[in-house]
Nucleic acid binder design. Structure first.
Lengths: 193, 193
DNA sequence: ACACATACTTGATATAGATCAAGTGGATTT
DNA sequence: AAATCCACTTGATCTATATCAAGTATGTGT
């Protein structure tokens, strides 16, 4: 469980053995059954969650009860209602498990503490967020300018695992298109091959 | 010019006087005339730019020659093709000045160097990016789920300065709607008052 | 194995907003 | 001051995709 976290961090910054050992003190492991909530809207998001195994989804629910996917988190990813985590305001997102999952929870206090105890973690998070900003900017531009089919093609090229692993209706929601539309797109693409 | 930068940083982290004096060594001031490019697509984005005065826009141009606004940067904001800056790949965005502007340029080398010389700058950028991620996530969800009018209303509530200061056609592009649609929305809203 | 729930597919219809076109107004250039 | 350019407005038409509805397939629980 911690192996996944440490090797993930290793890709971005170098921690010494002492720092690595110290890391465990700041995290609380948690298991989630498929469909189990990690966070419900209205509660405060008190932890960043690092996914060491499985797959979770972050989504909000509009007035009509429709779910809108925001982020999927699987092995090696962090997941949270970030604004709620940072500011303590009630979460607008729900987070639950698409598959049986294991996460490591980092509380807000420990988030600050860990960067003081291990300053390299400031750098790690900076680099993590840099990359996240680039990805999110791409997604934003795509959502504004691409056709539904272009959106789907982009996703299936940049992240084929997602297409295999996540139910189609959730993917449609993530792309901001209707499930019927996604079904039609996939059919059209299959017929073009 | 540096005053704006230092007071902006002061809002997030505390630097001592020595560190503040040191900051100037890492930046190059630059003035831009209205409409002057800071970055053209295809070039590598070699600097992060901090806007100390004025207003800039980041946009890309699609096959049909249409401009799509990505980010506006004004006093206190950082602006760049971030992916190009981080990786050295050619920029996909153009950046130019909507108004006469003054920026402070931080090269990639100095970006790394400054965080080593002043470790608190790692923290500053981490916090900066946290906030940016929250904002961007909101914008992403809005772009996928809001109607055109809802998008405009959100923007005018969260950022009225933008509505006043930026030409309507650029705002329309930023929201991912046609200028005609924005014009209609504004007319409808005015009639409802 | 059967019953039920849910995801996916398919056809028909509706719609929010894009696109096209032209007019008006304001800014810039000569 | 006149000419030109460009932003904004307005009306008409078009369209990508949403919505509605029903059927089919798959998964889950008993």
């Amino acid at each position: 469980m911690f192996d996944v976290l440490l090797s993930h961090i290793d890709e971005k910054v170098t921690l010494n053995e002492q720092e690595k050992a110290l890391m465990q003190n700041y995290f609380v492991p948690k298991r989630l059954r498929k469909r189990q909530y990690l966070l419900q809207e209205g509660d405060v998001c008190r932890n960043l969650a690092f996914v060491s195994k499985g797959l979770l989804r972050t989504y909000n629910v509009d007035d009509k009860g429709d779910e809108h996917m925001s982020i999927f988190g699987w092995e090696g990813w962090w997941i949270s209602d970030f604004n709620s985590f940072l500011t303590g305001v009630p979460a607008v997102f729900n987070i639950d498990a698409i598959e049986d999952s294991e996460v490591l929870l980092l509380s807000r206090e420990n988030y600050e503490a860990i960067t003081l105890a291990i300053p390299m973690m400031d750098r790690y998070f900076r680099i993590l967020y840099q990359n996240s900003l680039v990805t999110k900017e791409r997604r934003l531009m795509s959502s504004v300018t691409d056709t539904a089919e272009e959106k789907y093609l982009r996703l299936s090229q940049s992240n084929p695992d997602m297409i295999e692993r996540i139910p189609q209706n959730l993917i449609a929601s993530y792309l901001g298109i209707a499930p019927e539309t996604l079904s039609r797109i996939r059919k059209n693409l299959a017929m073009r091959k």
